[in-house]
């Protein structure tokens, strides 16, 4: 038994089935814990009062929106290079959740910007590049939907993902490269976080909850895709009969 065992769809189907409950419950518990910190332990902010609590959703969602895209690009590249079926399935399973998080990041950003900055939306570099990310997600999903042939769809979608990946570093560094209205990042590897410890803790717990949620949802989706594509095989038939 080695790592490659799980690269086969049949084995991965079983493994994913075992992992899903763990990640689902993990996501739920972490979300409860994170929300408890966000609303009951984290104190009022000195300048933004209670409105800052949107950060507990906004920042994890924004992180996930970029991170999921990079993971999709990674799986796409692996699939294109080594022709591994499972990587394409992973990329497909992640996209809708990535789009959801991008939308949430934009939505919560607007609701945060209106009371704090005084505008729902400004066309600064950070906001614009995040909007482009949403368009990219939508385009990739639409391309997959338009191509009936599975193999062609996998490859075409991955190529589009790869060419759009250049947008992610632009989003991330936009607040550094340009003077935007959007504030800089509070978390930075180079310096101490500019947040009170309990606030930081709440944000990180929410971020990990978002991670767990993404993994759980992606695994459920990838299981469906595997079953759909492997329906001709004996093991898939057996699973369908037993379930």
């Amino acid at each position: 038994m080695n790592l490659y065992t799980y690269a086969s769809p049949a084995n991965f189907y079983v493994l994913a089935g075992k992992l899903i409950p763990w990640f689902s419950w993990g996501a739920g518990l972490l979300a409860v814990w994170g929300l408890y910190i966000s609303f009951f332990l984290a104190p009022t902010d000195f300048q933004q009062s209670e409105a800052y609590r949107i950060i507990f959703i906004h920042v994890p969602a924004a992180w996930m929106s970029m991170f999921i895209y990079l993971v999709m690009a990674f799986w796409g590249a692996i699939g294109l290079a080594f022709n591994t079926r499972l990587s394409f399935m992973m990329a497909r399973a992640l996209a809708p959740t990535g789009a959801l998080f991008t939308f949430i990041a934009l939505w919560t950003g607007a609701l945060w910007g209106k009371p704090m900055w005084g505008a729902w939306w400004v066309w600064d570099a950070r906001l614009t590049s995040e909007l482009i990310l949403l368009f990219l997600y939508v385009g990739i999903i639409a391309l997959w939907a338009a191509i009936d042939d599975v193999r062609r769809g996998d490859r075409a979608g991955s190529l589009l993902t790869l060419i759009g990946a250049i947008n992610v570093p632009i989003i991330y560094f936009s607040v550094k490269w340009w003077n935007t209205l959007h504030q800089g990042s509070s978390i930075n590897l180079m310096k101490a976080p500019s947040m009170a410890a309990i606030m930081l803790q709440g944000m990180l717990v929410m971020a990990i909850a978002a991670w767990f949620y993404t993994i759980a949802v992606a695994l459920v989706r990838v299981r469906r895709i595997i079953l759909e594509r492997e329906r001709q095989t004996d093991w898939a038939k057996a699973i369908l009969e037993n379930e």
Partner: peptide
Amino acid sequence: TQVLAKHDENYMPPEAAH
């Protein structure tokens, strides 16, 4: 014609800020 507030990336309780 429009005034927007630009806040920084620091978040802390009022007591700490004080």
